[in-house]
Design a protein around this nucleic acid. Sequence first.
RNA 1: GGUGGGAUAGCGAAGUGGCCAAACGCAUCAGACUGUAAAUCUGACGACUUAUGUCUUCGAAGGUUCGAAUCCUUCUCCCACCA
Length: 405
Amino acid sequence: MNTNEQLDRLVARSVDLHTREEFERKLKAAASENRPLRIKYGADPSAPDIHLGHVVGLNKLREFQDGGHTVVFIIGDFTAMIGDPSGKSQTRKPLSRDQVKENAVSYQEQVFKILDPDRTEVRYNSEWLSPMGFEDVIRLSAHVTVAQMLARDDFSKRYGANQPISLVEFLYPLVQAYDSVMVKADVELGGTDQLFNLLLGRELQKVMGQEPQVIMTLPLLEGLDGVNKMSKSLGNYIGVTEPAKDIFGKAMSVSDDLMWRYFSLVLCMREDEMAAMQEAVASGARHPRDVKDELGRKLAARFHGEAAAAAASEEFARVFSKSELPEDIPELTLSAGDLENGTIGILSIMVKGGLASSNSEARRLITQGAVKINDEKVADPKHFLTPADGMIIRSGKRGFLRIKL
RNA sequence: GGUGGGAUAGCGAAGUGGCCAAACGCAUCAGACUGUAAAUCUGACGACUUAUGUCUUCGAAGGUUCGAAUCCUUCUCCCACCA
């Protein structure tokens, strides 16, 4: 692959690139000197679950690696131990050293599902941040002005709206920028929300006499709701360690419009290939559900293999399309002590079996017509039943329970 | 240090003595419609074996009152502005 091809491939799907000229120059220089570029990527170990939103960036990193470059994967263990108050009023609670270490390990396991370990340099930023004294911090801070900080969109908005901004939040971008200096990054990758921080890395490198890093931002993947970016705190994510059937099921719940984003950003489907699929759906040649099934399968297969993906797809069709029973149904074992005259109230079964968190909730579900015993609708919350082994209680679309005596 | 504002259910946000288990929006759950879609519509959304019933909730603790989310006192926490 020559440099131009590589450039095109690497630039695909990116949003910002500062600057293309520099990037081209760096790629050429690296090729002629036969040395890899150092691609920096920062990870926050306070949320150790990697989801598809992260995969967007990891995919790109992998492309760099396939081009022979080195990924410098920075685990922000130092910053995690301080706790980032950014955004919401709720301060993120600082993690202990052990927690951070633990998270970092699981983080790496997940990341190497996508990245090539041989071309990855894992670094912890405590390595250079911990030994710093207050004097060093002050010197570092001197490089940036408040006006520069307020240029960040989210800061200026919050400042204008009389919302609190902690001083720590000002320090965070600075720390991140300093990481770039310490690892001598050639390129830094991040989501579009990271633009400011990445740019600050460039500035700081310049000030400190380094060649500034090229920065590349990638689109933020929308979560399952189709509106907000995928994030753990919003609960709209698909995690890479989730069971195949959950990955599949969640993928199926995505709207038709959104599924193309997943094809493109997570599965890296080529433009022309995708255009052909969209055309097929538009003309009616392919049913959108089948396309989504393909999406779900491919996602599940990526993290669990083809066999598991196929099984997930079949299970899904059985349970939801045909409304049959899933393979694994949680069991509730009833003992004689639970029964009165050989019967038991439907409400207590539901609460015991975890189908409802309170009697009131169980009652609600029943009056709303969500509950079935062996496929027969229950209308009366006061219903008492004589349990039989293997009896199936169903609540809504997802709640199942098998009685065991 | 000073001045002002604030703390209400998962979140946002009304409510300034009884009609408040607390409007509304979002989220959630259920039903209808479907392709488990999405969108839409309907309903539910503190608990209690559903009762025009009881109990626990409106930052915390006390108090006033027949009656308090609402008034008073103290406390805790948060924010803005001025210095």
